[in-house]
Write a protein that binds this DNA or RNA. Structure first.
Length: 613
RNA sequence: GGCUUUGUAGCUCAACUGGAUAGAGCACUUGACUACGAAUCAAGAGGUUGCAAGUUCGAAUCUUGCCAAGGUCACCA
């Protein structure tokens, strides 16, 4: 039994014995003792005042007396207000440290339960940007966390490879590309295709602007504007209607999409070629970011799925049909209104596809848990989707989860493609690595290493700064991204934690072979030493908490706290020249365990540790 | 307007899910490198947790009402 379980169980037993009152072990209110007080764990005794009919201080005193008298692992207690502070024995901590030191992995054993997680989900008409990075880091980290808990994790990427957007790029390239390729242009494939998407938008805007000044444009504005609406706002809102109804270039793009749907070979070939360029580019980005996927689903394969499910649901009365043949679901009793699932012409919508894809994924892998990492603008969509799956009787409906995260704002405002304020993923990674390189070169700790070794370290440091900066923020919160701060290397940052790890490796290298078997003879643990072990003890809880909440930020903050305590320990205690052989053995073992724990925790965030920096 | 999320130090974030005097980093002021790496440590200053009620022994956290910001209310994806 672990020390926290022991305290909870002991407290429940004590309350029963002393006051004849039943307490559920899990209801015992206990937390880590605050820094300013003595002790390791604190039990809150207020809840027992009624049953005991005594003052909190007296209850705490009696419970403390009981616990310390009964359990050897608890050595001392003190009472402040209604809080019972308990001190854990040095022996317990020492044995716990030795136990962790002996483990070759901190992962939980595999139990075979499947966990599927979808993240990234890019469109193929544009390169990845900062928003994707947050998405990818969250998805990747959650996958790692569930893997560490013993799940069989399946990482999925859904590629939105079809639709009007990619047709725009294709059309622009066809019109103006003259057979150019990313290679001949010297541009990364995804950026290259993105360039043509922008070219299309330019053409369209030029056409749209001209139209606005034409007689037709004036007529539409005069007849359709809402009162008090100025020309600019009106035409902003009218853009899609114009694209669909009046635009020549829009008509051409739509014609291309229709050809694509008809399986026109010329269009399909072009589509394959340009998507191929994009995938090459994406793969480079993913590799630089250090992530990969187990399975890819292409929307071009799945966009027709779901219709059968709708048919089936119509039969069983889950959906209903309107006079115009469109199919709907009534979710008013779940406070979700009515939702269209099939158009009047029988074609599917986004929701239809998602229903079909969910079914297909379950058929393919049988994962009872499926997580979608998607920005919070789609909260409503997923509420509806999950409700529909439940009503359709999907066996896995309870295991569906939307990992919703807030969008990223820049210090200068929102990211908007129209205003050119998109932060490109490739540029960003290059910038952080450059910053790390500049800093490390100035420091000069890496002299003597080869060029490749150095570059590898710069990459690890730069990415650690970027990744940690993003992932330390609670996932569901909107966050502000300041490029200057994302390359910070001091304070609450990835490199700060890496530095703790590097110091540990440096000490261990210098110490050489040390016999740690006498570590248990060390009986006078200092406060910071106890803190470190009790923090290592917390790891399991933190990982579980992060998993339950689908939020890696818990682990990021934990790693920072641990590194901070280690830095303090490093400053306050001599390790290699410790006051006694036992103390040295103990501290070396402590360094090993902290190093292992930091590396483990950071790996769950997708952050690598360098040996030197 | 309906539904929904978020308001914590100048800035960026925490607060172990209702517990003790709300904590970190950055920026600012100061001290510590001839002891294992100063990307470090130590200290100072910085707060009416948007506002107001309520529940509770106890509220940043729960409830309600305001205020502010974001999202969403497409036969788009």
């Amino acid at each position: 039994m672990s020390i926290t379980e022991l305290i909870k169980e002991g407290t429940a037993k004590a309350v029963k014995d002393l006051y004849d009152h039943e307490v559920n072990v899990n209801d015992v209110n206990m937390n880590v003792t605050r820094k300013e007080f003595d002790g390791d764990y604190s039990v809150v005794v207020f809840p027992y005042t009624k049953a005991a009919k005594k003052k909190p201080e007296q209850i705490a005193d009696e419970l403390g007396e009981y616990l310390v008298g009964k359990y050897d692992d608890l050595t001392k207690y003190n009472v402040i207000k209604g809080f019972l502070n308990l001190e854990v024995s040095d022996t317990y901590w020492n044995q716990y440290l030795a136990k962790v030191a002996a483990q070759d992995t901190l992962k939980k054993p595999a139990h075979g339960e499947k966990f599927m997680i979808e993240f990234s989900s890019p469109n193929t008409n544009k390169p990845l940007h900062l928003g994707h990075i947050r998405n990818i880091l969250l998805g990747w980290s959650c996958a790692k966390i569930y893997d560490a808990l013993g799940y069989d994790v399946i990482k999925v990427q859904v590629v939105n490879d079809r639709g009007i957007a990619i047709c725009k790029s294709m059309l622009a390239w066809q019109m103006m590309g003259n057979g150019e390729t990313p290679e001949s242009a010297g541009i990364k494939g995804d950026h290259y295709v993105g360039k043509w998407y922008v070219e299309f938008e330019k053409l369209f805007q030029a056409e749209y602007q001209a139209w606005q000044k034409s007689i037709n444009g004036h007529f539409i504005f005069a007849t359709q504007k809402k009162k008090e609406q100025d020309q600019k706002t009106f035409f902003k809102g009218y853009k899609n209607t114009y694209f669909n109804n009046s635009s020549k270039i829009g008509a051409a793009a739509k014609a291309m999409l229709l050809k694509w749907e008809d399986g026109d070979t010329e269009v399909k070939d072009l589509w394959k070629k340009m998507n191929g360029w994009v995938y090459e580019g994406f793969n480079v980005t993913y590799e630089n970011l250090g992530v990969d996927f187990d399975q890819l689903y292409y929307e071009s394969d799945t966009y027709l799925l779901g219709k059968d499910n709708i048919e089936k649901g119509l039969g069983s009365g889950i959906f209903y049909k309107k006079e115009d043949n469109s199919v709907w679901i009534d979710l008013e009793d779940a406070k979700l209104d009515h939702k269209l699932v099939l158009r009047s012409d029988g074609t599917s919508v986004y929701m239809t596809q998602d229903i079909g894809t969910a079914e297909k994924r379950f058929e393919d892998h049988g994962a009872k848990q499926m997580v979608y990492v998607v920005a919070d603008e789609q909260n409503y969509h997923f509420k509806v989707l999950f409700e529909i799956m439940k009503r359709m009787g999907a066996s896995y409906a309870e295991g569906l989860h939307h990992l919703s995260y807030g969008m990223i704002d820049l210090t200068t405002g929102k990211m908007k493609s129209r205003e050119g304020t998109i932060v490109d993923a490739d540029d960003l990674m290059k910038d952080v690595i450059d910053a790390a390189r500049a800093n490390a070169v100035e420091r000069g700790e890496l002299d003597g290493l080869t060029h490749e070794e150095k570059e590898d370290i710069f990459r690890k440091i730069g990415l650690a700064a970027l990744k940690f900066f993003i992932i330390k923020v609670n996932a569901k919160k909107r966050m502000v991204f300041d490029p200057a701060k994302s390359v910070d290397l001091q304070g609450d940052t990835g490199p700060y934690i890496q530095n703790a790890y590097v110091r540990i490796q440096s000490v261990l290298r210098k110490a050489g072979e040390v016999d740690t078997s006498i570590a248990k003879e060390y009986k006078t643990l200092g406060e910071t030493e106890r803190d470190l072990i009790s923090q290592v003890f917390r790891l399991d809880d933190v990982v579980q908490l992060a998993a339950d909440n689908y939020d890696p930020s818990f682990i990021a903050n934990y790693c920072y706290d641990l590194a901070k305590t280690y830095h303090k320990f490093y400053h306050d205690f001599r390790i290699i020249n410790a006051e006694s052989p036992e103390a040295k053995a103990f501290r070396i073992q402590l360094c090993q365990v902290i190093g292992k724990t930091i590396a483990f925790g950071m790996d769950l965030l997708g952050i690598e540790m360098p040996e030197k920096m």
